[in-house]
Amino acid sequence: MTDTAAPHSDRSTEQSRSDATKNTTKAPGRTQTFGVAAVLAATLTALGYPMAVLWQVVTPRVEIISAGSGWAMTEHYPSEFVEADLSLVLMGLIAGLLAAVITWTWLRRWRGPTVLLGLVLGSLANQIVIWRYGVTQFNQFWDSVRDAPEGWHMWRPAAVKMVNIDVGAAWHALADGAIGAMFSHLELGVLAGMPFMAAFVYTGIAGWSRYASLRPE
């Protein structure tokens, strides 16, 4: 009777150790999770450059004629002035949706608030890269306009209007205690589309997860 119970006890002990080992393997460390979130944020930031080029390609441009010392538009109040902002918002929403779904699917072992933070910060940095790329193209364009011969037709690159980010001015406002003025220099405008959508979709999927830890047990 005793000999029969002993092997059963040994098997139970081995099974418990096996389960403990599996649970330990499934729960990544905090340092590793932060590393994954940082890589995710860096990857999304780097993707901003090809997305910026794509944004410039798909966005209609405003036609401008060089007029010697100045310039003139071929039509009054062209819709292309606002289409740059609208196309960036649409691109950001689509990119945020895809980024959230891919992050949830591919990084299932590290699901949680830390990866969500990396997703949101990376999405915001992605949009800032696109915005700054547009600013650079915009400034180079006007340099070309000044040097262009009179009557030369040129097409202005896409540039975002609904953004006001000046970290230096915001810092000075904070130092002076003007909190309201600080936030007025940190208006994301259309750049908030991608991080908002990414956070919304990721947390929405997490809310429907059947796992308490968000990771498959």
Rank of each mutant, 00 (worst) to 15 (best):
T2K: 10
A5S: 14
A6C: 04
S9P: 14
S12P: 00
S12E: 07
E14V: 12
E14S: 07
D19P: 06
D19E: 14
N23S: 07
N23K: 11
A27K: 15
P28C: 06
F34S: 00
G35M: 07
A37V: 09
A38E: 01
T45R: 01
T45D: 06
M51L: 13
L54M: 15
T59Y: 01
R61L: 15
S66A: 06
A67Y: 04
A72Q: 12
T74G: 11
Y77T: 05
S79Q: 11
E80H: 04
V82K: 14
M91G: 02
A95G: 14
G96Y: 10
A99F: 03
V101G: 00
I102V: 15
T103D: 02
R108T: 06
R111M: 06
R111S: 05
R111D: 04
G112S: 03
V115Y: 07
L116Y: 06
G118T: 13
S123H: 07
N126I: 04
N126A: 11
I128N: 04
R132S: 12
G134Q: 00
N139Y: 14
W142G: 00
D143M: 02
D143E: 13
S144G: 10
P149W: 11
E150P: 15
M154A: 13
A158R: 06
M162F: 11
N164H: 05
I165T: 01
G168Q: 11
A169W: 03
H172Y: 11
A173I: 03
D176R: 07
G180W: 04
A181P: 01
L186P: 07
L188T: 08
L188Q: 04
M194W: 02
P195G: 05
M197Q: 00
A198V: 07
T203N: 09
R210M: 06
Y211M: 08
R215F: 06
P216R: 05
P216M: 05
